[in-house]
Design a protein around this nucleic acid. Structure first.
Lengths: 226, 226, 226, 226
DNA sequence: CATGAATGAGGGTTCATTCAT
DNA sequence: CATGAATGAACCCTCATTCAT
């Protein structure tokens, strides 16, 4: 019953183990400094097996990026469902899912946010596609909110794109911050960002925070927003 | 008197040439792919001289990061001066300086934002220190604004820190976006961010944008906000 | 009943299939570049079976060389039979058999002539043995011809050995040449070599070619010689 | 005065040392089995230096082949000069040069004759070009002899090509034989081949050998031909 | 200080080969 | 005997770094 060198596992399982080891190693060492030897050892297999299944360091990294990107976008999509709700509520739910996921998968987040963008066009394109998906989602939320407020004629497309970029960038930064600051929950990070983005600093200063909806799927207390 | 090999320049000048070549090479190739040979050649000096002045690749990269970080923080600080103005005005000026600087020094920005964070703790710490300085500045602006609105008792320190993080992250993201989107000026990026951060999406949707102050230090027309 | 995976063949048959695949692969890829995977796949068997029957890549190659060498010497011996005929006739028949065999088994010839001599002493020795056999046969033909012409006292043994070497080398070279030159038949190659070796260039120049015997075992017309 | 690690040699010298080591290693081990480590060690330098000067294993082998091929063809060309002499005399001189060179450079000969033809089209083409040059030379000699004997109308071009191939093949084979048989001189090998090729076996048997011209450049005694 | 010779150390990649099922 | 998981051992190649001239 000991866990001494478990052997002969099906390929799919071994592959996931390798990807797990790779995420961790790439996150900690960086793409270049991470050696295939280290990844193989951490995965508990020999190097040739890694090559047999994943072909090359580049392919391995691509597989890692793809897996982590998909997991993140899936989490956000699932969190923001269903589509019918008001824009701020969808955003609130999506952000909570985002911060929860990045908090639970810090290595994956580091690979996506730091490593994948700096080591070759191929990887950058992979992660850019996933990010574009999220930016598009936010863009659409903003446009929906504008429609709901009968505001669309005056918001040029590029301005909306800039706002979405700003919001996503703020979220990414807060994810790093929450990861580095002990005691900050996903809910708190989301609340801070909703206040910032939805209410704005001026309203915040005047004591008019954004108020989270009474949610039923949450983890207990309502977010303390300011 | 010919324009052949320029000779015998003071050490400080030679060093700046090396750093210039290094920024460019590190930005284009990435830290690992950049070779000392290429940097020396681009700087127009011999490789041993690079080692004599900068000691090692790691030290060279550190020097580059330090120089670029200092230049960026200096630019922002200078832009936000003098200290007495209203918080939104200081922020507006600081952001314009930030976007102007990143637009004019894309290689330096790439090194700081992409390379330095992904190649070892030492470099990451270096750039984190500079970033912390800017975050502190923004934090203090928000606190000042809160005080001005008699709001401080209810804004916990951590919340302010989170807001500052969000704002800085949004700015970084917009800097990338502006760099990649032709036709977006520093002023437009700053205006978009001020709208987003100061007025908030809800106000924006209702047609209540943040209005830039008639500025005297600016480069011409008032920002078109919204 | 279906034509699916043919099963349960006797060991001898399976082994020949493996050797067939191996000759082809070794000839096309070369000894080192040929992979056991490719050979097994081409043979339609699993890799472990190859190892079960042939032990190792080295043994497999040795078996291939041995089989092809034996086939070639057998063909030449059979062609030159019966022993009683005049030397030039035996040589003529043996050469025709040689060129016919190399033309019909180009992969085997390539393995023997190119691969086996360049990948280790062990293989070189194997093919050298077979070659020595043919050289010995030619040597004996020359000695017989000398005896028939009452010439032996003056032909030292080493000289005869050299002549046999020259003749065999010329044949090998012509086999390559015939294989690479479209339209050259085995009979023509043999005729060219008989002219060269038996008549000699000087006689050829003077219009005195060697004339092939009216043969009864041949494939039709008499050789056009010159 | 000891030969302890001589250092800092000019590039041209080091390159020749590397090529020397490479010829030897490639000849003994074969292209694939020869490791760059072994070559570097035999050359008395570190592996990176080999790569710095010769770029890659493939390039190194190409350089070796080119150098050895050029040396061989140069030797033959020089031996056969001047062009005005009778064909058999030119051939005789060329052959002596050929056997002398192959005897003095057995490793180079092995690389050209065995290794270069079996390890990739690129190398094969390189050596084929050199061989074609020699074949062309022989072809022209035969044609000249035919013209001198008023024999050209009846010797088709392909037949001449075949004869040249046969002669060159015989020479190659005799070079191997002479290299492997102690006591066989270049002169003896050349005499054997001249007898074989020029006089022909039939004449030889009848006691009519080809007689070497009284040469003045030779190494002493006249060739004992038969 | 330029030039260029020189290397230690390590990383990616590939096979022949074996064993459990 | 097929299948496919698994590895030991090498090999090619590169680069930061140093030293003599």
């Amino acid at each position: 019953m000991g866990a001494g060198k478990t052997k002969r596992m099906p390929r799919a399982v071994r592959e996931q183990q390798m990807l797990d080891a790779a995420v961790r190693t790439f996150a900690r060492r960086g793409y270049t400094a991470a050696s295939m030897d280290e990844i193989a050892e951490l995965a508990g297999v020999s190097k040739p097996l890694v090559y047999l299944y994943l072909n090359s360091k580049e392919d391995l990294f691509t597989a890692v990026v793809r897996r982590e990107a998909r997991a993140l976008t899936e989490a956000v999509r699932a969190g923001a469902r269903p589509a019918g709700q008001p824009a701020d509520r969808q955003l609130w739910n999506g952000l909570r899912a985002f911060f929860t996921h990045t908090a639970q998968h810090p290595d994956g987040w580091a690979v996506l946010h730091l490593q994948a963008r700096t080591h070759g066009e191929r990887f950058a394109a992979e992660v850019a596609a996933a990010r574009a998906e999220i930016v598009a989602f936010v863009t659409q939320l903003i446009a929906a909110a504008a429609r709901a407020a009968h505001r669309d004629p005056d918001l040029p497309e590029r301005e909306v794109a800039g706002l979405a970029e700003a919001l996503v960038g703020a979220a990414e930064s807060l994810a790093d911050w929450a990861g580095a600051t002990p005691g900050v929950t996903a809910r708190q990070a989301a609340a801070t960002l909703m206040n910032f983005a939805w209410a704005g600093l001026d309203d915040l200063m005047r004591g008019r925070p954004w108020v989270p909806p009474g949610d039923e799927s949450g983890d207990g207390a309502a977010a303390r927003a300011g």
